[in-house]
Design a protein around this nucleic acid. Structure first.
Lengths: 349, 349
DNA sequence: CTGAAAGCGCTAACAA
DNA sequence: TTGTTAGCGCTTTCAG
């Protein structure tokens, strides 16, 4: 059987297609009773709009997605960007387009950018809130204007954003713990090097690791949880002291992207390969350390997939009316020496 | 600036849109010289067809993709199927549709199914060749009719299929080796349990493991490479004997999906958790063994992503004219206890 | 408040 | 060999 169209509905309702259109889209200038009637018929007929027809009729850009992410294209955000752009390109034919308003770095002037986007008539937003507190009101405002916002990588917890795409930080920590626990002997000591524990994400990763390690490693102990505050020097120094102070240390989990100082410290102290080092994310400079065994494995957030997924959630929702999950945790990938070449960071330059 | 359309071209070439259409699509009834001229103009204008318009005009099914995969929906192939169907649904609006002609099990009557599909006017094919030798000629025939065929999961090496989507078996083996090597002490013994070594895929997985283990595990040795021929009994029996005969065995890699007998053998012999067991793929029955540590990790082929990727390659090629890689190796995922819930097999029932 | 009609860019059938 | 024309299903504008 053929799919019902707007004409079909019009005929059954004994109105014109114009009226049907008004009813379907909540446009003004129609009596409430006729709208009800039309909607009922549409439902009965399981009407779904013909997207190609709509795209054709409305011309360019049926659904504009605003993007506000950091401009730093070198690694992580560049991958997110690529994932978003690639996915949008695939559905351009359906009238999807994007408005790219990046910020120079995470959180830098994002309020202005997002406010701009709201003014540009987008119907959806993808953002990495750098400063959730100041961004939250903007998100509220957007959602009230019926602009769906999807947070990516970092969430805006106190807002009513439509969805979040990213990884589950606690799971990241647990995976790291499981790997360490399997690599080290029972009763071993391990340590966590993180950013600032006041940051929710870092706190959860640590927590996940701590709890996971306690359960996975019989008789294991946590030597320390160090806050490196994303500082290279601090990271290096604290790691050196950690190693010196704990000759029986067998595992280290670095929960931030800032793992190079730790690698250098391990190398300099001559314990590269002796201590199971689990890191986070992936960028080219990590290559040598993964290859020579300093880094045993890395928990990879798959930024490209995050970008792709964010766009998919939105188009599935806005084009096909698919349900959208409130949060979408992606499966962290595990980077080893052998599969290094499989990751975009290492195969696409 | 606005994108050039068929009208624009017609005006510049001083012909009608009908003629432009003929030129653009290699339809008959046009002088070669005018076709050349029109094509040149189109190129200069960077003409890209408006897919929505095309889909609308041509009505249902602009690009029909034929699917011939095993019907066994329980696990692996069910995931492939889901990936394919989901992805097709997302571009249905662009006139993409599929013709599903499954075989009961791998290779069973696939020639007939594929031949059927060729007769049904599809313009692309996604197949899992069960018997590459007999399928290859059909693939040749299809490609000669300008039907692009993508092999999925298993390749048809001697054919000119347009692309292959799956994992690199050798890499699978290497990853397993890296994991085992990291889990066991130096000088440890490991074994491989595989299907039939005459099968290319099994041979390559074993090879990858053997070579990888030799390099990754200092002083390590391979205790045995057992062919279990996908038989439960054989698998169980051989594993028991393997364990009995090698008290110093520290690692086992099962390169087929048939890992349950091995798990049972390890459990029955009381070495569950003592021997690092790396398996392949994922299905619900593996859950308990992953949770209790009998299986240390599994190398997951991500069938859903394979299906999705196959469709994407085809639509990108046929709709957007994107280049298509001759082979597309996906990154095998690593299943651990902690991330078990992230996989579709365990979160979607 | 509702109806009628003109396209959107392309395909396909028919005319010349 | 080429031109003309009628839609595809929807949005939008202009009349009523």
């Amino acid at each position: 059987m053929k799919r019902a169209g707007i004409h079909q509905i019009a005929k059954l309702a004994k109105v014109s297609i114009g009226t049907v259109d008004r009813a379907l889209h909540g446009r003004p200038g129609i009596r409430e009773s006729t709208r009800k009637r039309i909607l009922r018929i549409a439902k009965k007929l399981e009407y779904t709009p013909h997207l190609a027809a709509r795209a054709l009729s409305v011309g360019r850009a049926n659904l504009r997605i605003g993007i506000c992410i950091p401009e730093e294209i070198r690694f992580f955000y560049g991958q997110i960007r690529a994932g978003i752009f690639d996915e949008v390109r695939r559905v351009k034919g359906l009238g999807v387009d994007l408005v790219y308003r990046p910020v120079p770095s995470l959180g830098e002037g994002e309020d202005i950018r997002i406010a701009d986007l709201l003014g540009e008539g987008v119907s959806a937003l993808i953002v990495t809130p750098g400063n959730p507190k100041t961004v939250a009101p903007l998100i509220e405002k957007a959602e009230q204007q019926n602009i769906r916002v999807v947070c990516i990588t970092t969430d805006a917890p106190r807002s009513h954003r439509t969805s979040f795409v990213g990884i589950d930080p606690e799971l990241s920590g647990r995976m790291a713990a499981e790997l360490v626990a399997k690599f080290v002997p029972a009763g071993a000591k391990a340590a966590v090097i993180t950013g600032m524990l006041t940051t929710e994400e870092h706190r959860l990763k640590s927590l996940g690791f701590l709890d996971g390690f306690r359960k996975d490693c019989e008789g294991g102990a946590i030597a320390a949880v160090l806050e490196a505050h994303e500082s290279e020097q601090e990271s290096y120094g604290k790691t050196c002291r950690l190693i010196a102070g704990h000759p029986d240390l067998h595992g280290i989990y670095v929960s931030t992207v800032n793992c190079l100082p730790v690698c250098r410290a391990l190398t300099d102290q001559g314990v590269s390969g002796k201590i199971a080092l689990i890191t986070t994310d992936l960028f080219p400079e990590m290559g040598p350390y993964l290859r020579n065994g300093t880094i045993m494995a890395s928990i990879y957030q798959d930024p490209y997939l995050q970008g792709q997924t964010a766009v998919r959630l939105l188009t599935d929702l806005l084009l096909n009316g698919a349900p959208i999950p409130e949060t979408r945790f992606l499966n962290p990938a595990i980077v080893l020496r052998t599969n290094l070449g499989q990751f975009r960071e290492f195969s696409h330059g």
